[in-house]
Simulated assay, not measured.
Amino acid sequence: MKSGDLKISWARQYMPVLSSIRERFEREQPFAGMTIGMALHVEAKTAVLVETLAAGGAEVHITGCNPLSTQDDVAAALNERPRIHCYAKRACSVEEYYASIDKVLDARPAVTIDDGMDLIHRIHTERRELLKTIIGGCEETTTGIHRLRAMAQEGKLAFPVIAVNDTPMKRYFDNVHGTGESSLTAIMTTTNVLIGGKHVVVAGYGYCGRGLATKARGLGARVIVTEIDPRRALQAHMDGFDVMTMDEAASRGDIFVTTTGNTSIITRQHFPKMKDGAILSNAGHFNVELEVDWLEENAGAIERRDGIDSYTIGGKTLHVLAEGRLVNLAVPKGMGHPIEVMDLRGFRKTALFSKVLYSPGST
């Protein structure tokens, strides 16, 4: 077997929920004649989901939702499956990224599956002719939900979208255990540094931040939480974490992880305060939580190695992982969420589609 097939086969073994759903889909064919367009992280667990939808009769067109999260061997393996068309490529340019989005939309999908809302945004801004035939879609990450809610409040969202990110199963398992465990794994395998004894600064105490803070403490870290919501900040305090502003935490942290889904969390005002050797990473969807552009323009010597960019400021060196992108997938050895967590995520999407979008009499 080729490497992509081996990865998919390994993941499938630990995804019993999707395997059970696939058996039902093969019998019932709920998506027969339907085209589904997807923009997701193209790796082995996603591939099992794509296979499941295709087994239910769908014609699936998929591309990546992050320029650095695609595993090329998995993308190649998907292209060898019937009714599956994959356009994703790792380390693609911005132009190539959106060209692949357009290839998915050229297939005129009836349903979209988004991680970050790039498909939906493209439809509403550049491909509005598709609004006549779109039944609906889903969005599975916090950043995408923020964007969708802003569109909805402005009256600009033209078709229904299921907020998969808001389901309890997503928050309690995917965000807490998936993001928490996989982000720390990616940091450790990329840097080979010890977590125990270090000050780990977690920005944001939503579900992702809670999971990451708890798991870092389990590895022996001295965890600091920064949070602007007073109730969440109080919750972090009551959970036993040190709580302070990023201005205060900047000089104390050894490892920083942002988990907010918002912009400009660690910025130019924080970099000069940091320790020599501080490690900065982002566990939010888009590369907007760390002000990497400022470092690129204003830092001294820049050294690059696999998954790490090092910047010199005032005689101190700061290390940014994965260009400030989603650390658990964008580092060279990033594997994303644990398989079992993604099995539950795949269940949520397929269940929502089969029961809501394609139930008799649905619109």
Score class of each variant (00 low, 15 high):
P82W: 00
C92W: 03
A91M: 11
P67N: 10
H85L: 02
G64S: 15
A88D: 02
C86P: 03
H61Y: 15
L49N: 06
S93Y: 01
L49I: 15
R81Y: 06
S93L: 01
E80W: 00
S93G: 06
T46M: 04
Y87P: 07
A91D: 15
L78E: 06
L78P: 08
T63Q: 01
H61M: 03
A76E: 15
Y87K: 02
G57E: 13
E51I: 05
Y87E: 08
I62C: 13
A58H: 12
A77H: 11
C86Q: 10
Y87Q: 04
G57Q: 13
V48A: 12
P82A: 14
S93T: 15
A54T: 06
T70W: 09
V74G: 07
V60H: 03
A47F: 04
L78R: 05
A88S: 06
A55T: 01
A54I: 07
E59D: 14
S69F: 00
I62G: 04
V74D: 02
R90P: 00
N66H: 09
G56I: 11
S93K: 00
R90I: 04
G57R: 10
A54E: 07
V60C: 10
R90M: 11
V50Y: 03
S69K: 03
A75P: 08
L53H: 09
T70I: 03
R83T: 01
T63K: 02
L68F: 13
N79K: 09
Y87N: 11
L68H: 09
H61A: 11
V50S: 03
R83V: 00
G64L: 01
T63Y: 01
T52G: 07
T52P: 07
V50Q: 07
L53E: 08
L78V: 04
T70K: 05
E59V: 00
E80D: 13
E51W: 08
